[in-house]
């Protein structure tokens, strides 16, 4: 085990922040996609899509930032994780492609609209599931030999990762519902409010089930939980409180509270995972120090981290500022010409 250099720590921090940004930002638009599949009402669907249309691919930028930074700064971790999650990554990319083109093609088509609708709903669900399953599989530990993944392409398939996969589908759907509460009004907002209690209950149930599952059936999955001790326990507690906050905010019909609390939930859940995994980048085999590229490489790439990345962040923020307030319903891309 090698101690990470300050540059390696800097890049680990950058990647952690980028992951959090990605999960919250792309999480809500993927979640809207998941909820999109649960309704057949055309006006509602168009409005749902309109509420995320200006943002979704700026949000996906952060996924590429994570991937590119991981390859540049921690090539060994990148290699192991891409090998271990060959299938989830493939499924995620397929899902991302279909839901991405759905945004461009849906409202221009009539005959093929069913295809783009299915692409948006199933694509979003697939992305959420693949990411959630990968997290669950990481909690169970990734077998590594000679700095390469030592399992099979389907070794991630297990009860526990399937559970976390479903959990993330529900979690993103919750974020999506909170986003729509924030960005829409009238019927769709009411519809979204009505979904929040059920989604909170669902997420809560999956978390409880995962906890019990790891303690009873799947000891591998409990490795992470056992590493939680001392002040680290605060994070899961905060997570549960944030989840309650989402519920209470929705009850009180306070538009901004559910989204804020859902974001807190995801941040604390991420920190919980961070405490479980630290100092490993690939649990429980490759540490941050082991995976880091030499300082000559990290230093060369530093410009990207201190100049380009803040620029992307400013750009992201600027876009949210331009499209602030409620989504203009007259311009949500409702199909022209009608059916």
């Amino acid at each position: 085990m090698v101690d990470p250099s300050p540059l390696a720590l800097f890049w680990a921090g950058v990647i952690a922040l980028a992951i959090v940004a990605y999960v919250i930002l792309d999480g809500f638009d993927i979640g809207v996609g998941v909820l999109f599949g649960t309704t057949r009402d055309e006006a509602r669907r168009a409005e749902m899509m309109g509420s995320v249309a200006p943002f979704w691919d700026g949000n996906e930028t952060w996924l590429v930032v994570v991937g590119a930074s991981l390859f540049a700064a921690f090539p060994a971790a990148y290699a192991v994780l891409m090998g271990a999650f060959y299938m989830p990554v493939l499924l995620m990319l397929v899902g991302l492609i279909f839901r991405g083109v759905a945004f461009e093609f849906r409202y221009r088509s009539h005959r093929m609209r069913w295809l783009w609708d299915a692409g948006f709903a199933y694509g979003s669900t697939l992305v959420a599931f693949a990411q959630g399953a990968a997290v669950g599989a990481m909690m169970r530990g990734v077998p590594v030999e000679n700095m390469q993944f030592a399992g099979g392409a389907f070794s991630w398939v297990h009860g526990f990762p399937v559970l976390t996969g479903i959990g993330l589908v529900l979690g993103y759907a919750l974020l999506g519902a909170c986003w729509m509460v924030l960005k829409t009004e009238g019927a769709l907002q009411a519809w979204s409010y009505a979904r929040i209690p059920w989604l909170v209950a669902g997420v809560f149930m999956i978390l409880g089930l995962a906890f019990v599952w790891s303690l009873t059936i799947d000891p591998d999955a409990a490795q992470g939980a056992r590493r939680l001790s001392g002040w680290g326990v605060a994070f899961p507690i905060l997570s549960v409180l944030a989840l309650l906050g989402v519920l209470l905010g929705a009850r009180a019909r306070r538009e901004t509270v559910p989204m804020a609390m859902a974001a807190v939930f995801f941040v604390t859940a991420f920190l919980t995972l961070g405490v479980m995994f630290w100092p490993y980048m690939v649990p429980y085999a490759v540490t941050v120090g082991d995976a880091a590229a030499p300082d000559q490489a990290l230093g060369f790439f530093l410009f990207a981290g201190v100049v380009v990345l803040p620029l992307i962040a400013v750009y992201t923020a600027g876009k949210y500022w331009i499209f602030r307030g409620k989504t203009d319903r007259g311009h949500v891309g409702v199909a022209r010409g009608g059916r």
Partner: peptide, 23 residues
């Protein structure tokens, strides 16, 4: 994602050169 997914040894062995360039 291709470099890591299918060419893991390449990514691990020369990633500190290829990674920053592609990044």
């Amino acid at each position: 994602f291709q470099f890591g997914a299918n060419w893991g040894v390449l990514a691990e062995r020369v990633g500190s050169i290829q990674g920053p360039l592609l990044g």
